[in-house]
Structure formats: structure tokens, C-alpha cells
Design a protein around this nucleic acid. Structure first.
Lengths: 185, 185
DNA sequence: GAAATTTGTCTCAATAATGTGACATTTTCT
DNA sequence: AGAAAATGTCACATTATTGAGACAAATTTC
């Protein structure tokens, strides 16, 4: 049975990633709960957003850490991390948006993300491949990192908007990412 | 000399693409103008956003139409359209976000974008390349279209966040886009 | 099925954002 | 310089959103 708290957080994530200014009323409605109940679980909007951020970071990190550990081959590690992130859907989008915005204003949050060990695992693997000349040497790591994130978002969005069939989704993303960084399998 | 109206619209575009819920106060400040003046030019928030949307659509379409016409070679057409969009910076991001959100809620706006002749020119060119088997046949056109947009955003964002040098920007985007769709030059 | 817990409804106060009028000040144009 | 236009300042009404109390209704737990 899903707890009310979880329902509210999930609803908030779905709402807020599209429209940061959605009212608590709307979030409560999306969660199938009265606004009064939402207020019982979260002191205010900031508290709610903070909770979403924390839960979603945990959720995404967990999924990607598992994916990282699922295979020995560095290429498969990266591929499975990509797939895991896509499967996170709205959760991933939410985290990404929070992180993006923080980049220009909230340095603490950026640091928090930078020091995140999922990112360092990802970087380690990419560097490994770079050193082995298995990907395009013209591109820098920060570019590849940004690209990775945006291809994930594209895949999530493409399914939601109905542009791409759910089956093709991850496949397209992987083909494109491989090509984009010139990965030699 | 830049007109007040233009200053306000530019400021609104910069603010709103990051944070849809920025106050008119903040937008006025960003434009270096009092809130009272902003209200003299725009009846209300909706009017302002509508104006931004229209102006930015015109700006982006113009830049990309020029780029399209700048060369006969289909590949160079696409490349120059990519570059033009990246150069639009905040303007392009703003339009893209408006369009994205509309996808789920505002069908009129979607139609408006769909019927846009810049998009049809782009599609025509991509189809041409697809028929000539000059790009990966596994991918669908809608996927490629989404990818095109998100690589542009990645390039814009990468420079703003300081992750990628301004010189490398367009180059990286083009290398990655080519690779992502398996384009054979 | 009774008690305890959770949630909903209704209400109201506090706050923040918005929109506008009146008038002063500044800028622009000639 | 002086008129005309644009902008700023301040004040105020309106509105939307938020947050919480009081109690009823529903749900869970034992």
C-alpha cells in the first residue's frame, strides 16, 4: 500500500518538473488528496520540494548504482546506467531540472551533486574509455556528461509525448548516445 | 537604441526560461525598468508571455530559415540550422520550453508549431537524407527531431554553465548530432 | 465493534503578487 | 529652453496562494 506521503511526493514530482509554479492545490489534487492533508505532511512548499529532491536523488542514485554494478564491461555499465535513468522517468527529469537551475544560483546544491558518487563512477568509466581511445577524442568529458543527461531526458519526453513507442525508447537513446560520442564497441 | 519593450521582452525570456514563476518585479528589475513601466507595455503576465512567445518564434524562425537557405547541400542546411539555433541561445530555449509544455496541455500551440514552415523544411531535408540512406535507418524522424532540439539546448546550456568553452560549443554539438543519427558526410 | 488514527470540509487570517491611479521626474525632440 | 513623451515613485485595491484551527467523516487497528 502506497503511503500518503509517497503519493504526494510522486504527484509533486510529476507536477513540478513541468511547471515549477504549480499550486499546492493542484499537487494535492494530482495526488488524490486534500490540500489540508498535504499541509499535514509538509510544512510548506519549500519543505515539499526539499523532500522531493532528497527522495528522487536517492531513487535515481540507487537505480544507477545498481545498473553500474550490473556488469563488468565499462560500455555495458554506461548503457545500463542510461537505461536505468530513462526508467526513472519523471524522477530523473525532476532531479535534472533542480540541478540545472542550481548551476546558476545555488552552489551548495551543485557541490552536493558533484560529490555524488554515482557521477564519479560514471566519470571514471568514461575516462577509462577515453584513455583506451574507444570514443571520440575531440569531445570533452563535461560535454559528454551533459549530453548523457539530455539524451536521457529526450528519451523520457519522447515516450510521454507519444512521439516514440515505448519499446524503441531506450534503444534509440543508446544508439544515439553511442554515435554521439563515437563509441567503438 | 533598444526600445523599452524589447528590453523587457529580452529580460522576460531570460528569466522565464529558467524559472517560469519569476515575478514581474524581478523581470522589470532584470530589464532595468520599474514595474509600473512594465505594466504600461503589457496588460498582464499572460500578455507578456504571449508577446515573448511570438517574438521569439519570429526570431528563431528567421534565423533558421536564413540558415536553411544558406547552402544547397542538405547536410550543410541541417548543420547551419543547428548553429543558428544555438546562436539564438535563450531565445531558442524559451521557445522550446513553451512548446514542450504545450505538448501535454495546449493543443493549439502544438499545432501552430507543427505547421511551422521551418519545421517542415527541416523534416524535408532529413527525409531526403533518410531516403538516400545517409543516416541511421533504425531511427525514426520524430526521434531525430527531438534529439536535434535537445542537442541544441545542451550546447546553449553547456556554455552558460561554463562547462564548455564558447569556441567548442557549436563544434561539439555538430559532431555529436552527426554521430547520434549516423550521418555519413 | 470500539478506539485510535488519518483524512476531509469548512473557515479564516496572513502573505505575496498583481494591476492601476495620481503625480513627480527624467528624457527626447525640435 | 520648452513642450511632449516616457518613465519613476508611491499609494492603494484586488486577487491568488498559503497555512492552520475546529470538527466531522472515514479508515485502520486491535
Amino acid at each position: 500500500m502506497i503511503s500518503t506521503r509517497t503519493k504526494i511526493i510522486a504527484a509533486a514530482v510529476r507536477c513540478l518538473r513541468n511547471n515549477q509554479s504549480d499550486t499546492l492545490e493542484k499537487i494535492a489534487e494530482e495526488a488524490g488528496v486534500s490540500r489540508r492533508t498535504l499541509h499535514r505532511y509538509f510544512e510548506n512548499r519549500e519543505d515539499l520540494i526539499e523532500s522531493c529532491k532528497n527522495e528522487m536523488l536517492v531513487s535515481c542514485n540507487k537505480a544507477m548504482t545498481t545498473a553500474y554494478a550490473s556488469d563488468k564491461d565499462p560500455i555495458k555499465k554506461i548503457r545500463n546506467m542510461l537505461f536505468a535513468a530513462i526508467e526513472q522517468g519523471a524522477n530523473y527529469s525532476f532531479v535534472k531540472r533542480i540541478y540545472e537551475r542550481s548551476n546558476f544560483s545555488d552552489l551548495d546544491r551543485k557541490k552536493e551533486f558533484e560529490s555524488d558518487n554515482v557521477k564519479s563512477k560514471w566519470l571514471k568509466t568514461i575516462n577509462e574509455l577515453q584513455k583506451a581511445k574507444r570514443l571520440n577524442t575531440e569531445l570533452t568529458t563535461p560535454w559528454i556528461f551533459n549530453l548523457f543527461g539530455s539524451i536521457i531526458e529526450t528519451a523520457i519526453y519522447a515516450v510521454e509525448s507519444g512521439d516514440v513507442a515505448k519499446n524503441d525508447n531506450k534503444n534509440f537513446a543508446w544508439i544515439s548516445f553511442k554515435g554521439a560520442i563515437g563509441l567503438k564497441e
